[in-house]
Amino acid sequence: MPVSRTEVTVHVNREATDTLETDMPALEARGSFALHLQGHDTPAHVHCRLNGDRRFSQIVSIDGPNYYVEANDMITVPISVAATDIDGSLEGELEVLTGYGSESVTIDVTVKPKPATVDIDESFSKPRAETTTEQSPLEQALERASAVGLEPGTLALAALGVLALGIGVSTAATIGGPAAMIALLVVVGGVTTALALVLS
């Protein structure tokens, strides 16, 4: 079963001249990965190539085919995978050869598309600002009156009645006498009657 990795190592001349070894016979990639050519006892010429169908060859590419690996040195070979251009798995092989092709090791490569990314609106991570609107005393009074079923027109008439009463009281206090008091009582009676008719 392929193992999902971003790198694979091939040991060159670890046991003897013209030998190649890897502990990963299969690799699963969702993007570009690296091939490490790890030199050991003696230097060697190494050839790398990719095998697969036309689609695999279009998606997967190797940086270069030929490398000279010094003893106890390591060379990293980039393997490019354009996984964003595929919508399903692709299978091929990565082959490493030495000794003029007399020795080779093959690694099965399965390329899978990268997981789809989900764009998250940053506004979701911010706490929602609470909109608090200060109401004037008049607005608060109108809101309370609406809650108990009083119409704005009724409230306006009541305000005019209170104003008329205020004017009547101040006039009666200023003029004085029985005529002023009678006029005040007429105003009070008119306002009371008008309010009673509106509220009924």
Rank of each mutant, 00 (worst) to 15 (best):
Met1Thr: 15
Ser4Phe: 15
Thr6Met: 03
Val8Gly: 03
Val12Phe: 01
Glu15Asp: 13
Ala16Ile: 08
Asp23Gln: 07
Leu27Lys: 01
Arg30Asn: 11
Ser32Pro: 07
Phe33Gly: 00
Ala34Gly: 00
Asp41Gly: 02
His45Val: 12
Val46Lys: 07
Leu50Ile: 12
Gly52Ile: 06
Pro65Phe: 15
Pro65Thr: 04
Asn72Arg: 11
Met74Phe: 02
Ile75His: 00
Pro78His: 01
Ser80Tyr: 00
Asp85His: 08
Ile86Ala: 04
Ser89Ala: 15
Glu91Phe: 01
Tyr100Ala: 11
Tyr100Thr: 10
Val105Lys: 02
Asp108Ser: 02
Asp108Thr: 09
Val111Glu: 05
Pro113Glu: 12
Pro115His: 03
Asp119Glu: 11
Ile120Cys: 01
Ile120Lys: 02
Glu122Ser: 14
Ser125Met: 10
Ser125Thr: 02
Glu130Val: 05
Glu130Gly: 09
Thr132Cys: 10
Thr133Tyr: 00
Pro137Thr: 03
Gln140Arg: 15
Gln140Cys: 02
Ala141Glu: 02
Ala141Thr: 09
Ser146Arg: 07
Gly149Ala: 11
Gly149Arg: 11
Pro152Met: 09
Leu157Cys: 10
Ala159Lys: 05
Leu160Ser: 07
Val162Asp: 08
Ala164Leu: 11
Gly168Phe: 15
Val169Pro: 00
Thr171Tyr: 10
Ala173Leu: 15
Leu184Phe: 14
Leu185Gly: 07
Val187Ala: 07
Ala196Lys: 15
